[in-house]
Design a protein around this nucleic acid. Sequence first.
DNA 1: TTGAAAGCGGTACCAT
DNA 2: ATGGTACCGCTTTCAA
Lengths: 340, 340
Amino acid sequence: MSQSPEQSAERPVPTSADVARLAGVSRATVSYVLNNTSAVRISEPTRRKVREAADELGYVPHAAARSLRAGHSRMVLLPTAHVPIGPLYSRFLSELQGELRRLDYTVVQYGSLGLRGDEAARAWAELRPVAVVSLGEPALTAHGVELLKRSGAKAVITLGPDPAPGAHALVMDHREVGARAVEHLLERGRRRIGVIMPEEPGLEMFSVPRLAGARAAAAGTEAEIVPVPLRYEEEPAAELAGRWRDLGLDAVFAYNDEFAMLLMRALQDAGVDVPGETAVVGADDLLLGRLLRPRLSTVQLDMVIGRHLAELVDRLVRDPAGPPERHDLMAVRMVPRESS
Amino acid sequence: MSQSPEQSAERPVPTSADVARLAGVSRATVSYVLNNTSAVRISEPTRRKVREAADELGYVPHAAARSLRAGHSRMVLLPTAHVPIGPLYSRFLSELQGELRRLDYTVVQYGSLGLRGDEAARAWAELRPVAVVSLGEPALTAHGVELLKRSGAKAVITLGPDPAPGAHALVMDHREVGARAVEHLLERGRRRIGVIMPEEPGLEMFSVPRLAGARAAAAGTEAEIVPVPLRYEEEPAAELAGRWRDLGLDAVFAYNDEFAMLLMRALQDAGVDVPGETAVVGADDLLLGRLLRPRLSTVQLDMVIGRHLAELVDRLVRDPAGPPERHDLMAVRMVPRESS
DNA sequence: TTGAAAGCGGTACCAT
DNA sequence: ATGGTACCGCTTTCAA
């Protein structure tokens, strides 16, 4: 019992008033000193007293109070629902955060899992972010966008396949992905092309446009597109491979490299020759694909560079006027290897 | 030019005072109505007037103002530096967010990339979170923990291999992982065991303890542990495989399943038989490992369940007194398959 | 060079 | 049943 471990539990959080009292100055002076306000000259001894007092108390300014007073914040809100997995996304995210921080913004990811429709937009608006970068889920409606703007968001940007009306959009048109894959397979002489549709929730956002693109590419040819649902697990894949020949497919676009690996293994185990009997194409160009045998053909997507997006955010925040901009930014490229 | 698109750009953000004015009531009444305050009875017509006014203006309360007044928030801060990639982590994160939301907390991920040492703790403290769950990077010092507590954080929890002094800790002792792998290899009669050390930044947090565990498991036996640096790319792996026989290793613990896949492919390409000449063990038990041939032996880690952590947060917030708790929660299990 | 005071947007006590 | 008002912590004129 030499000392109570709860001493800090009940001690109230120190405010600038506490610092002022301890330093024997006014709150104004504390603010001037701690913010290095250049419009005001404070004597060196006073500065020191204030700094020491702040240190001693462990004073940290209250961000909410500050931005309340200032009338604005520099928070960029990044709502996240299903955390899109994958190295592409993580790299993009790190980049975006780094670049925005350099521009003196604060990036906040806000978990919006259970929120539906405009509930989500309301929740975001309560935080009064200066900008919102939506990754497409939960989807932003025109009304949601308006709500955010009314609440002071200078820039509302959607990033993904479906732009929200009224928002700026960085469009990633995933139809391109499916189209590129199917065009490639057609060139290779394939005619009945399966398209894997993951059954995991949250992936329709990509899989549906990819399928649409595949269909568009096949339109006007004699080729046929066959959607094939699949769960990312071993047994369903084996089961699918077991009845593969009944499907009569001579090629398959496997949604991405990971599904391609799963499917290719199952096909090989079932005695289906790849690419002889069935060609397989993935997407994302992960290292994984180069490690498979046969090496996996894939559709490479150049994700948005975070820097580009960060600069867009900054520009829109500085000059919010102007109609919604729409940037197309998915460079998609077929990388043929051995599996097709 | 039928209408200016900037009409909303300059319109000030509506406040509860605006709603009150439009509804012809006081701000107090607005607050009562919109919060359904049960201690106060408001007539139905008034309620309707207020609601309509709020809707018409697109009023959304200001979270900062509210928590300033309330003196506390329900924000749980989750600092993220390098977004740890991988399906395990994403699943854990979704779970944690979901569970905390059910408990009525708001999960905020705060990108802390450039911040060093106590800078980070200060930045977090400015947000006055009710709880902080640190994933280990940037590392939290005793001083940082104290700062956060002084700033009103009821719970400071570290999650990872290195608990911070003064904070509660969910310890994941990754030494276990290396130990389990090496014990298994010893049983299999292997004696010169390589341990892959990824050269990517941010992974030392796991790789170093895993190596230590491997060494501990080998101590007192005649076996030898050899650290082997490797970048997660094709060429370095091929290069390593090229000089593999010079290393004289009969087994390797490959850090995780992905590195194991990379290495195994390179070894096989170089004509090194797995497991005949060299046994390979991964970690994480990804689906990927089961798809390899030979099937990959791996160390399975049961990650913290998000629910468990969410409940801990809630309990500590309700009752912050008490000494730092330390929970060990990594169930680690060797899953032998064909590669070892 | 420093201090007093207003006010940012809400909430909740105390009157009426 | 409703309104007036003090206050949360901070910044920033304006005065002294």
